[in-house]
C-alpha cells in the first residue's frame, strides 16, 4: 500500500457526468479536478442534488463519466472494461452507503466476509478477517445477527467493516450518517476518526458538519463543481463528540 509521496491515491481531471440531451441536459458533475493523497480524509459538502454523490460514484468506478479522467493509484479507471472495473472495486475501493446496502439474507459476519470471498480468499481467511473487523467496530457479539435485528448504527458499522474487508486503498462513504440518530452518528464518527488515525484514505460525502469536522480537507460543491476548498487543522481532536456537540 505504499505510494510515492507525490502520487495521489485518487486523481480526477475534468471529470464530467451529464444526463439527458439538448434543453434537458443536466450536468451533474461539471469539470471536477481532484487529488487525494494517501492517508488523507476529505469531506465533500453541498446542497442536495449538487452532484456530490454522483462524483463519489464516478471516483469509485460505480458509474461511468461522460468525460474527463479518473485514476486510482496511478491507473486510469474511466476507460477500462466492466470486468477490470469490478476487479478494481474489489480490491482498491471500499464503499459505505447511506442506506447501508447490506444483504438482508446474510448475517453481519457473512456480510463482512463477502468482499473477501469475492476476491478469492479462502473461506477460513475471509471469516478470520471478518471477525477481526467486527471486533474493530465493536460488534463481535452481533456477528450472527441478521441486519434486520441490528440498529441503524450497528448496520452502518457492519457496512464500514465490510468496506475494509479487502484492505482498500480508499474508502468512499456516501452520507454515512444520513439515516442515523445522534447516538449512532457519534459511533460512526468515532469509527471514521479511528480509521483516519490508522492512515486510511477516506472520502466522505456528507450534509453533516460534524462529519466534515473530522476531515483534513473540506470541499464545497455546488451545481456539479467545486466552489471552495478548506484545509482543516488537525482533522481530529480525540474529543470529537464534545467538539461537534454530541457530548457534554
Amino acid at each position: 500500500m505504499s505510494n510515492a509521496a507525490d502520487m495521489p491515491v485518487l486523481r480526477a481531471r475534468g471529470l464530467r457526468k451529464e444526463y439527458g440531451k439538448g434543453l434537458g441536459l443536466v450536468r451533474a458533475v461539471d469539470g471536477v479536478d481532484l487529488d487525494i493523497g494517501a492517508g488523507e480524509t476529505v469531506a465533500v459538502m453541498g446542497p442536495s442534488g449538487c452532484g456530490k454523490s454522483t462524483m463519489l460514484h464516478l471516483l469509485g468506478g460505480l458509474d461511468r463519466p461522460s468525460g474527463g479522467e479518473v485514476s486510482l493509484n496511478g491507473r486510469r479507471i474511466d476507460d477500462i472494461g466492466e470486468r477490470a472495473l469490478a476487479r478494481m472495486r474489489r480490491t482498491v475501493v471500499g464503499f459505505v452507503f447511506q442506506a447501508f446496502h447490506l444483504m438482508e439474507e446474510l448475517t453481519a459476519i457473512e456480510n463482512v466476509e463477502l468482499p473477501a470471498l469475492l476476491a478469492g480468499r479462502s473461506p477460513r481467511a475471509a471469516r478470520r478477517r471478518a471477525e477481526e473487523l467486527l471486533e474493530q467496530v465493536g460488534l463481535t457479539d452481533r456477528a450472527r445477527f441478521l441486519p434486520s435485528a441490528l440498529s441503524g448504527g450497528q448496520r452502518q458499522r457492519v457496512a464500514v467493516a465490510r468496506a475494509l474487508s479487502n484492505e482498500p486503498l480508499v474508502v468512499l462513504a456516501d452520507e454515512p450518517t444520513g439515516n442515523l440518530d445522534s447516538a449512532a452518528t457519534l459511533d460512526v464518527l468515532q469509527l471514521f476518526e479511528s480509521l483516519h488515525g490508522s492512515g486510511q484514505t477516506l472520502v466522505i460525502v456528507t450534509h453533516d458538519p460534524r462529519i466534515a469536522a473530522t476531515a483534513d480537507r473540506l470541499i464545497s460543491m455546488r451545481d456539479g463543481a467545486f466552489v471552495d476548498e478548506t484545509r482543516l487543522s488537525g482533522g481530529t481532536t480525540g474529543q470529537l463528540g464534545a467538539l461537534v456537540g454530541l457530548e457534554d
Binding site: 469490478a86 476487479r87 474489489r90 444483504m103 463477502l114
Partner: peptide, 15 residues
Amino acid sequence: HSSALERALGATPRD
C-alpha cells in the same frame, strides 16, 4: 439489488 450490490463489492457481470 443483490446483484448490483455484489457488483459494487467487486463481482464481475459474469460472476
